[in-house]
């Protein structure tokens, strides 16, 4: 019996484990501004994809009698269109890295990808 031990405080609520899990044991659902990730207590598959996929190393395998775990995250709304697009934790994970490359926090950090596309297009459209 192999159980899944998820360190809730390390999880940033990204899609990695749920996307990579081919048999769909780990599920991710976005409803309104809430993201729910549900982990099963155990997993019989001969696979460690989720463990390797996790960006923060929050997943580990254990032997004990595990129990199902459900983590909830708040999705922050896009500052332009208001659509919830990422968890606070994800942005906290991403922003320092992005800031390192861009030499400072970008002013578009609160925008969802669609609105960033829109803003980039507006920037280009200035030429006309």
């Amino acid at each position: 019996m192999r159980t899944l031990e998820v360190a809730g405080e390390k999880c940033i609520g990204c899609r990695a484990c749920s996307s990579i899990c081919a048999p769909l044991h780990i599920s991710l659902t976005d409803v309104g501004n809430r993201r729910t990730i549900a982990f099963p207590a155990s997993c019989e598959e001969d696979c460690d994809l989720c463990l390797r996929a996790c960006p923060t190393g929050a997943i580990a395998f254990g032997a004990g009698p595990g129990k199902p775990l459900t983590l909830e995250f708040e999705l922050i709304p896009c500052s332009k269109c208001g659509k919830p697009f990422a968890t606070r934790e994800e942005m906290a994970f991403v922003l320092p890295k992005v800031s390192k490359v861009l030499g400072g926090e970008p002013d578009w950090k609160g925008l969802c990808p669609e609105c960033r596309r829109e803003e980039s297009a507006s920037g280009l459209r200035v030429a006309i």
Partner: peptide
Amino acid sequence: APCVRACRTGA
């Protein structure tokens, strides 16, 4: 300047 408007990183 259009270039400043188009720049996404503040460069």
